[in-house]
Design a protein around this nucleic acid. Structure first.
Length: 502
RNA sequence: GAUUCCGUAGCUCAGCUGGUAGAGCAUAACACUUUUAAUGUUAGGGUCAUGGGUUCGAAUCCCAUCGGGAUCACCA
């Protein structure tokens, strides 16, 4: 690999540093007793506490002024200006540390530790007056420089998505708002986990490698186990395993699960994604709607201390209760057709009239779903539960208690996108077996996402699964919503990319 | 998978109807003891994604490949 001019310069500097007897990658710890955010926040009120501070970070800018210099160093909490004066860091006759090391051999991107005292410059910037400086890591690759002017406008922002996603470490260093999205992602997950734990629900782990990939309609990734000499599939959902645990006697289990689906990628789909699935015994889908409302409201409050969240041009309000609309009513309202009593043939005709593309492999349920997706879905900006789906598209869901042909299922739509999917879970083992058989018929028609029959799961619910309600919430999409991110790549540290060639 | 747009210095971008490349920042040198997109003077840095083709001549036009974005299909 050919080195650029700047890389050669930095490697030469590295040698110079070593020749001066300075270790560019020291082993010893560097004791830190302050960080940038803490200093900026508390210094004015509590000046005495900042007479003797020690902090570390990456050099992000350097302004040489002869025998003094200003630099900004960035630590995990933000940026801090430091002031380095020659005679302060070199009190004796030997001025090498300043003249050679600091002025010539340090670069933007290097990581240093500084000790000194906090003061305010003539122009009013809280800064660290450095009395001693230690090189902690020499950087040999030039870091893109983003400058922010006095109006707060950033110049030369690295916006190339390829660089940002492939080299997330660079993105995180130079684009400060990126870090915040990921911190918020963790706030969301912690908020959800606390909410569930407070109710006594048990967090569990279930297999990722499965011999029958069940619980969703999707194409799986296939791998191979050498010792067993069998194909294994990366899970597309963990639903069937969590329900087995309900059979086993747990009354509420949940899992933050990485699921894998071998399908197209775009700004709302990554091959691996995270879902939180929760199953609670002796509950139904009405109860689950209330729980989801309460949980999302709490997450918004934990993030922003308000239920209002910006999403593009819209402001979402997570204040309970959310609107509840039956699927057929939603279609009636937005597509102007009543599909509640239509046969498959009539549905096909209706799709044609509405100019919706359909495939021959689509059954009745799928056709209704197509109409909803094309005509109604995008209207639901504020959190809305769409409920009561046709039985054909929900093979794991219990039949509706009063309306024939429907199941007790809801999906939550926010900003026109599906965020979660929930059922009164089907626990009638004979019905479940029949539903699996219907799925096999769909598979025979060419639906490569139809579910395969899982005999062990059937055996489990034959022992008896209590009435149970379950929900799956897409964590990546929830994070997108809550952080106003328009693509899933922005809420995943390392989104899937084609392998890079070096 | 389909359509479409893009790929020029470490970074952000110019580059006209084809005449073998420019700027700012960054880098190097000098000056400067409170600056802040620091400043001033000077210098270096590019197989124009890759491979073909058209042409006297290609960053520019055409084709293919690689990578990325957007839209669509599939899906969450």
């Amino acid at each position: 690999m050919e080195l650029s001019e700047q890389e050669l310069v930095r490697r030469n500097k590295l040698e110079e540093i070593k020749k001066l007897g300075i270790e560019p990658y020291p082993a010893a710890l560097f004791e830190v007793n302050a960080n940038s955010a803490d200093i900026l926040e508390h210094y004015e009120r509590d000046k005495l506490n900042y007479k003797n501070i020690s902090m570390a970070g990456r050099i992000m800018s350097l302004r040489q002024m002869g025998n003094a210099a200003f630099a900004e160093i960035q630590d995990a909490r933000g940026r801090m200006q430091i002031y380095v004066k020659r005679d302060e860091i070199c009190p004796g006759e030997d001025k090498t540390l300043f003249n050679s090391v600091f002025k010539k051999l340090l670069d933007i991107g290097d990581i240093i530790g500084v000790k000194g005292y906090v003061f305010t410059t003539n122009t009013g910037t809280i800064s660290v007056h450095v009395t001693s400086l230690t090189l902690l890591t020499k950087s040999v690759r030039p870091l893109p420089v983003v400058k922010v002017d006095s109006e707060g406008k950033a110049h030369d922002v690295v916006s190339d998505p390829e660089l940002r996603y492939r080299q997330r470490y660079v993105d995180l260093i130079i684009n400060p708002e990126v870090r915040n999205v990921f911190v918020q992602r963790t706030v969301i997950i912690n908020s959800m986990r606390n909410f569930l734990n407070e109710r006594g629900y048990l967090e569990v782990e279930t297999p990722i490698l499965q011999s029958i990939p069940g619980g969703a309609a999707a194409r799986p990734f296939v791998t191979h186990h050498n010792a067993l000499d069998i194909p294994l599939y990366l899970r597309i959902a963990n639903e069937l395993y969590l329900k087995r645990l309900i059979v086993g006697g747990f009354d509420a289990v949940y899992e933050f699960a990485k699921d894998f689906r071998n399908e197209g990628m775009d700004r709302t789909h990554n091959p691996e994604f995270t879902q939180m699935e929760l199953y609670v015994a002796y509950k139904d889908y009405e109860w689950m709607m209330s729980l989801v409302e309460e949980m999302l409201e709490k997450i918004a409050m934990d993030l922003y201390s308000t239920t209002k969240v910006a999403a593009g041009e819209n402001t979402l309000d997570f204040h309970r209760p959310f609107q509840r609309v039956r699927l057929f009513d939603a279609i009636k309202e937005h597509a102007g057709v009543d599909v509640s009593n239509m046969s498959e043939e009539e549905l096909r005709k209706t799709c044609k009239e509405l100019k919706i593309d359909v495939a021959p492999s689509m059954g009745k349920g799928k056709l209704i779903d197509e109409i909803f997706s094309a005509k109604a879905q995008h209207h639901y900006i504020q959190p809305t539960f769409i409920m009561d789906y046709p039985v054909e598209m929900s093979p794991l869901c219990k039949k509706h208690r009063t309306i024939p042909g429907l199941v007790e299922r809801f999906e939550l739509f926010i900003n026109g996108k599906e965020l979660c999917n929930a059922y009164s879970e089907l626990n009638d083992p004979l019905d479940q077996r029949a539903r699996f058989e219907d799925q096999m018929k769909l598979a025979e028609r060419g639906d490569d996402e139809a579910m395969t029959i899982d005999n062990d799961f059937l055996r489990a619910i034959e022992y008896g699964m209590p009435p149970t309600s379950g929900v799956g919430i897409g964590i990546d999409r929830l994070t997108m919503l809550m952080t106003n991110s328009s693509s899933i790549q922005d809420v995943l540290f390392f989104p899937q990319m084609r392998p890079e060639r070096f």
